[in-house]
Amino acid sequence: MEKDFIIRTKNVDFFYGAFRALSDVTVDFEKNKVTALIGPSGCGKSTLLRLLNRMNDLIDGTRVEGEILFEGRNIYAPDVDPVEIRQRIGMVFQKPNPFPKSIFNNITYAPKLAGIRDRGEIEALVEASLKQAVLWDEVKDILTKSAMTLSGGQQQRLCIARALAMKPDVILMDEPTSALDPISTAKIEELIDTLKKHYTIIIVTHNMQQAARISEYTGFFYLGKLIEFNATEKIFTNPDVKQTEDYITGRFG
């Protein structure tokens, strides 16, 4: 069967000022699969993730070279609006970052901006998103309460629900469980497993077991380079590159 790649990067270089954070990264992300990006801190994995929905635009003095194609279109082409890209490629951050608004308004924030006005449609969307994020049962009676009152794990699932409400094609996750306890982490991992039926998920993680548990593909980064990209099983049992093996087996990093 022909593989369906939703995002492809071609020879991507990225610079913070004079510092080259990524060099020559070429990688294809398959649709409706989970891809994990691993590597030691500062290896460029988060930088790549933030390039995929143009979040790095927000940092002054950065420069991208090469192409990043989303459904065949270069998202760094001059006529592309980053706002539209971000509507279709959602993101979940390392630290849960709900808005200081009610749970309900956290979910409806983006859909309302996108032009959805109908009250019934919005309420259905809130319920569906929270159910998808397996948070509905915990919060259905406190939707008008501030999201800040939720626990860290609940906040992170709220952030996932908030991203889902836009019905994105891709969800980027930047170490989404690193600020959470083991139980919350397990819940999020379960969630990722159910979400991949409908969404393409690209997740940065520093936890190799997590990558092994949840992903189909894994990319290993080191010093701004993509060292190896392979099926997760292959990476963790019989990697092609020596450096990958050294990292996986804990010999450095």
């Binding site: 509507q87 279709r88 908030r162």
Partner: peptide
């Protein structure tokens, strides 16, 4: 900064982020 990032990542424009997230916060 997290609030701003969350807003941009959801596809809000700068104006929307300022009016609906930054000023309320």
């Amino acid at each position: 900064r997290e609030f701003k990032e969350a807003s941009y990542a959801l596809g809000a424009t700068k104006y929307e982020t300022i009016i609906r997230v930054i000023i309320p916060a």
